[in-house]
Design a binder for these strands. Structure first.
Lengths: 193, 193
DNA sequence: CCCTTTTCACCTAGGTGGTAAGAT
DNA sequence: ATCTTACCACCTAGGTGAAAAGGG
């Protein structure tokens, strides 16, 4: 998905947040290698604020501007990949997709979704944690995980799309938005997806 | 679901098997109690032949008759509940549903479905296995599981329904079959579902 | 004015039994 | 004659952005 993420990132990716929770598109997915096939791992994601700023979209210049200091940070949550825990052999044999992860702007969310502030910029992160069931596991816990951050997956949380070109790229590439495709070349699926 | 299973059982439950795999209806689901909340358990199901017989349906008498010896047993498989392994506290706090389990008559099935012989009678079984990660776990493994068998959940595997009353009860109760409901009282949903 | 919420038509994805054709 | 397969219309379930209404 890297090339798709980059296309969105060039336009400044926006992700919808709703009260009920909204999936991400593109989906965050990774190919993993180098794991011990017999060891158990947990995969999880979180989202960290890129900065302490609030943004607004300037339609006349089609660009995002800083609109002041960021709101107080939303409750930090993590999303465990539903296959966790699993052996390294399971994780490495196919693409790991976080397609069931949902974003919400509801600070009181009760469904385990990731809580974000609208109009704030975030960086998704992936954590790979080795499950160590031995007695001294506590002492080494700090060594038993790796964190990965892909800059092209950062985005601004929104309650409605701001940049029309983002909307068109979503419509062109997300199969669930097929109903909004027209004859225009702009939102027709092509090599870009 | 016990009362629904009993209604089907009174008519001799039939379950469709297909090459691609078919869900069961009613769904096998249980409420569990008495687990150690902190311990880990695996829940799994299998299907054992009720006897070594092959059956056929006699339309004139609307009953199942023995039609000879059973075919050679299909490959024995088990279906792990997808939430496995999980803590006792997770299992006991809500109904555990095996709704994603699928039945197939394809002896070469590659999708992990349960392989059954059509026109043979089966008894579903539930196994609750305590996950013991201690060193001597092998020695006690035979003590670490319980098996449950509910007689009202037995059924005959079929590639097409034989008893019209079974068909009507499926249509009346399975929401996915709503398209086949008519004004007849026979397949209208009611207290029976 | 800027942002959020609700509702909607239109999709994807996949679970039903009916039906007719195919297989043995 | 008996059983199986492939395809179908019709559902459930839920993911889309558009549009209009709501809120500060």
């Amino acid at each position: 998905m890297q090339s798709l993420w980059r296309q969105f990132d060039q336009l400044s990716t926006e992700m919808i947040v709703t009260k009920a929770g909204r999936r991400m598109f593109p989906t965050f997915q990774v190919h993993i290698s180098g794991m011990d096939p017999a060891a158990e791992y947990v995969l999880l994601m979180d989202f960290i604020p890129v900065d302490d700023k609030r943004y607004r979209y300037a339609f006349h210049s089609s660009s995002w501007l800083v609109a002041g200091r960021g709101d107080i940070a939303a409750p930090g949550r993590v999303h465990f990949h539903p296959d966790s825990p699993a052996r390294g052999s399971q994780w490495i044999k196919q693409t790991v997709s976080f397609d069931r992860l949902k974003l919400t702007n509801n600070l009181l969310d009760d469904n385990g979704h990731m809580i974000l502030n609208s109009m704030h910029r975030y960086q998704p992160r992936l954590h790979v944690v080795l499950v160590d069931r031995s007695r001294n596991s506590q002492r080494f816990a700090h060594r038993n995980f790796c964190t990965f951050s892909f800059p092209e997956t950062r985005f601004i949380a929104v309650t409605a799309y701001q940049n029309h070109r983002i909307t068109q790229l979503k419509i062109a590439c997300n199969p669930f938005a097929k109903g909004f495709r027209t004859a225009d070349s702009e939102n027709r699926p092509s090599a870009q997806c």
